[in-house]
């Protein structure tokens, strides 16, 4: 089994698609680091507040002159236009500094494309095998099909987890200079790091789940396109259309539970799922998909 795992690992990493994606991701991380560094800058607090006040006065003046805002007859009763404008226009200094603390939200955002990437790469890993017919060749060397498929899906899921964590770590490395040199590390402490680590690890787990499901669909359908079609079809039909009509069902849907998993807490609103429940449900979905894929692979003819 270890030989099979090593072979599948090498084959996955040697794929051109995987290497091309890795290069693109690296380039993206470098660009993000440079752009953030260039955009972030420190100004003294007094200047920032003065600028914010000036901006507010300008907007209030435009509001009073009627260039925006409601028509005068629609103003709240007993309130002059100037009073109304001064009450609705607030003065928030626009902080141009990059806050390292904001990485928690950044990582929540980057988890989504990374999960989709894991889905696509894993589906294409087995889909390409069916397309090239190499499953036949492999089975003439290792006919125990359960071993073969378990090795493949294990490699996909493990690499999805490790890859996601590694990419987030590289992103942390790329953005930290912007915070340290031209931004701020305010609020960065042990609690923040634990929260950030939680987001990264849960994102990695979600990517592994996505990889398992994408792989399983492509394996059963014996093609990458089917897995991609099923994925997009599911997002469009189930998550969007059915979710809009049957809102009570959404607590069973992938995306909502994935959102709970990434955020690390119960979502406000009508999704009654705790973090543990969402993680368990998603894991069961992935396990179910893998079991179906193994069952189909074990019994169906390879022609």
């Amino acid at each position: 089994m270890s030989g099979l795992l090593v072979v599948e690992l090498r084959r996955f990493l040697a794929r051109r698609l995987v290497r091309a994606v890795a290069v693109l991701v690296m380039v993206g991380i470098v660009i993000a680091g440079i752009a953030t560094l260039a955009k972030s800058h420190r100004s003294d607090a007094g200047a920032l507040e003065a600028q914010a006040r000036a901006d507010r006065d300008r907007i209030v003046a435009e509001c009073i002159s009627g260039r925006f805002g409601p028509p005068t007859e629609a103003l709240p009763p007993g309130q002059s236009r100037e009073e109304f404008c001064r009450s609705v226009v607030t003065s928030e200094p626009n902080d141009p500094r990059f806050h390292l603390m904001s990485l928690v939200d950044v990582f929540k955002g980057t988890t989504v494309p990374l999960v989709l990437l894991a889905w696509v790469l894993s589906a294409s890993f087995i889909g390409a095998e069916w397309h090239a017919g190499t499953v036949t060749t492999l089975l003439t060397w290792e006919p125990r099909r359960i071993r073969v498929l378990v090795a493949k899906v294990a490699v996909c899921m493990a690499l999805a987890f490790v890859g996601t964590v590694a990419i987030q770590a590289l992103l942390l490395g790329a953005l930290t200079p912007a915070a340290v040199l031209r931004g701020t590390t305010e609020g960065v402490n042990g609690a923040w790091f634990r929260e950030l680590s939680g987001v990264v690890l849960r994102g990695g787990a979600l990517a592994a789940i996505g990889a398992g499901i994408g792989f399983s669909i492509a394996s059963v359908a014996r093609g990458t396109a089917a897995a991609l079609g099923a994925g997009f079809g599911y997002l469009l039909v189930v998550e969007q259309l059915i979710g809009a009509v049957r809102q009570g069902w959404r607590s069973w849907f992938l995306v909502w539970n994935a959102a709970v998993l990434v955020n690390g807490h119960r979502l406000a609103g009508d999704i009654p799922r705790s973090l543990a429940e969402a993680a368990l449900l998603l894991s069961l979905y992935a396990a179910g998909a893998v079991v179906v894929a193994i069952g189909a692979f074990r019994t169906r003819d390879v022609t």
Partner: peptide
């Protein structure tokens, strides 16, 4: 039928991957 090997890999890599099994 037609030998099915990974088209994106070299002949040597294909055989090395199989041989490792």
């Amino acid at each position: 039928e037609t030998p099915a090997l990974f088209p994106g890999f070299s002949g040597r890599r294909n055989l090395e991957l199989l041989g490792r099994l």
